[in-house]
Amino acid sequence: MVFPVKSCAPIRRTCARLNEYGFEFDRMWMVATQKAPADGSGPAQWVLCSQREQPAMALIDQALAMPGDRGDQWTDDEIAAGPGPYCAGGRLTLSLRTPNPPPPLVVPFRTVAELSPLESTTIAVHKYSVAGVDEGDAAAAWLSSFLGIPVRLFVKHPTQPRELSTKHVPSHSWFSYPPQTAFADGFPLLLLSQESVDDVRSKLAARGDPTNVTTLNFRPNIVVSGCERPFQEDEWLQLRIGDAEFIGASRCIRCMMPSNNPETGESGVEPTKLLMSYRRVDRGRKYQSCFGINMVHRRTGVVVRVADPIVPTQVGVHDGRGIWQLGTEPIVYA
């Protein structure tokens, strides 16, 4: 799955190509709002607006159209082999899954040459500062009207890199590109297993809880199946999927977002409460629940496809304090 605008509904894909940020188009755009510092020490700053504060963002559907006279009729294979997200003529379309929705919002792609000289805006994505380019007043008005607060849409600035935490990534010599990401929380890719999701579902059912939890609650890029047991992915430090190689950077720390209903855009309690009861498994994150693993790809230009074979090539124990820390072998904490 890819999520072109962070926190909006996913686009399901049968294949996707890896670029320097992760899967092409994934978290390339972000909605942001302005907030004053809590201590009143300075002017308002642009900060991430996500389903954490606006669960109704789950009702914003997304579509991608590549250049050419066929409009949206491009196949996943053609998109994966295409010229990339900043190609002339392509577009992102947002629409609302609500009664009496407004006309869809169409956001044309712009080339690197068009975006590079434009003024950038620094946006706070949790503890990171990321450079984006404003997508204009029409996009801001469409999103602000739906969310009920003033927001603007930004696309990732193409020439100002967003580096990854050095605690969770080996040295750059392991990669064919400078490892980075766009507007993702911290890493280019998130992987989890169907067996882990099924484990959560079965535990909720055993409690008599009617909450319908699916993979969509956890917003992964890659869902694998065929694991011998739930949460086997916790052990993966390196793996191959088809022709692509990945580093397991860390376990994914979960907030309240998995308890948002992806079909209704309403917030809830589960599965967050359940995860806190049995998924506080990371010694470096004792007071936080974990679900899935964050990953970094070693090469760009590789296409990952549904049904590609998955081969873990190194297993071990993740630790929230960081197991790589620019080393050539993962650190093992006593």
Score class of each variant (00 low, 15 high):
residue 321 R to M: 07
residue 248 G to R: 03
residue 161 P to V: 06
residue 276 M to I: 00
residue 5 V to L: 06
residue 121 T to Q: 08
residue 104 P to E: 09
residue 304 V to H: 06
residue 83 P to N: 11
residue 100 N to C: 02
residue 228 E to K: 09
residue 279 R to G: 06
residue 224 V to Y: 09
residue 197 V to P: 04
residue 132 G to A: 08
residue 239 L to S: 11
residue 65 A to D: 13
residue 56 A to T: 11
residue 239 L to W: 14
residue 285 R to P: 00
residue 168 H to G: 00
residue 228 E to A: 13
residue 249 A to N: 12
residue 71 G to L: 08
residue 105 L to R: 02
residue 32 A to G: 10
residue 193 S to G: 13
residue 68 G to Q: 11
residue 125 V to F: 10
residue 93 T to W: 01
residue 175 F to I: 11
residue 271 P to N: 02
residue 323 I to N: 09
residue 183 F to E: 05
residue 66 M to C: 07
residue 16 A to D: 05
residue 271 P to G: 02
residue 271 P to R: 00
residue 274 L to W: 08
residue 217 N to L: 08
residue 31 V to G: 07
residue 127 K to E: 15
residue 50 S to R: 01
residue 226 G to S: 03
residue 137 D to R: 05
residue 260 N to H: 13
residue 199 D to Y: 09
residue 235 E to G: 06
residue 196 S to D: 10
residue 198 D to W: 00
residue 77 D to F: 00
residue 170 P to S: 07
residue 273 K to M: 07
residue 262 P to T: 04
residue 262 P to Y: 02
residue 219 R to N: 06
residue 176 S to V: 03
residue 185 D to Q: 06
residue 110 R to F: 02
residue 108 P to H: 03
residue 210 P to I: 03
residue 245 E to Q: 12
residue 168 H to S: 10
residue 291 F to T: 06
residue 61 D to P: 00
residue 258 P to W: 05
residue 235 E to N: 08
residue 6 K to I: 09
residue 250 S to W: 01
residue 131 A to V: 05
residue 41 S to P: 03
residue 34 Q to I: 05
residue 119 E to F: 00
residue 306 V to S: 11
residue 305 R to Y: 04
residue 303 V to I: 15
residue 199 D to T: 03
residue 149 I to R: 04
residue 269 V to R: 06
residue 159 T to L: 09
residue 77 D to E: 15
residue 327 G to V: 00
residue 184 A to S: 15
residue 316 G to Y: 02
residue 133 V to F: 08
residue 4 P to A: 05
residue 128 Y to I: 00
residue 233 E to Q: 08
residue 192 L to R: 04
residue 8 C to A: 14
residue 159 T to D: 13
residue 211 T to Q: 07
residue 229 R to C: 13
residue 246 F to S: 11
residue 326 L to T: 13
residue 283 R to C: 12
residue 100 N to V: 02
residue 32 A to Q: 09
residue 331 I to E: 04
residue 273 K to V: 14
residue 334 A to S: 04
residue 282 D to I: 08
residue 292 G to H: 00
residue 110 R to P: 01
residue 92 L to D: 09
residue 137 D to V: 11
residue 268 G to R: 10
residue 63 A to K: 13
residue 275 L to F: 03
residue 48 L to P: 02
residue 170 P to D: 05
residue 113 A to P: 09
residue 130 V to E: 06
residue 310 I to Y: 01
residue 60 I to R: 01
residue 98 T to M: 14
residue 319 D to M: 04
residue 293 I to K: 01
residue 206 A to Y: 03
residue 102 P to S: 09
residue 41 S to C: 07
residue 54 Q to A: 10
residue 234 D to I: 05
residue 86 Y to R: 15
residue 267 S to Y: 02
residue 321 R to E: 14
residue 218 F to A: 08
residue 183 F to V: 03
residue 79 I to W: 04
residue 280 R to D: 07
residue 151 V to T: 12
